[in-house]
Amino acid sequence: MLKDHAKLMHAIAVSEEIVGRKKLQKMIYIAKNIAFPFQERFQFHFYGPYSEELTLRVEELCNMGFLNEVKEKKGGYYQYRYTLTETGKEFLDINSVEMPSLQDCLLDMNGQNARFLELVSTVLYFNDLPKEEVKEKVFTLKSKQRYTDEEVEQAYQYIGSLREKAGLH
């Protein structure tokens, strides 16, 4: 019951704090794509894979008082900071979630910037294509981000290292 909510809360709890909605979206997408059983469905949007269901669930968790959302002004726009509330921690104690090695992966991703995670998630989204085609997709669909060949290579390496952390190699 409310298992999907609990999984998401667990993800935020083990990440300690996630800053930015884009970052949260990408972290969950990458985690789901490499190994972890998150249920939210993703589609391709402006910033890469995006889940309306995830947005909704986060909003619900805030309304329920399980998640704390702090809105802060940054340059020309607002960004959001997410942590678990005391009630959220209490809920998670009753509805514990077992996802071994998720914490290692999420903490690592949390240390990366949103721009890089956007690239990593886009590479994963097109992962069934050959590398050259993935690059073409990245350069065409993400032309404003001006990613370089080197960055795409780094994204591939990073995906490999996350898979190792998740125990897939």
Partner: peptide, 8 residues
């Protein structure tokens, strides 16, 4: 659309 946000 709000710039910088993820609700796209």
């Amino acid at each position: 659309y709000r710039p910088g946000e993820e609700e796209e």
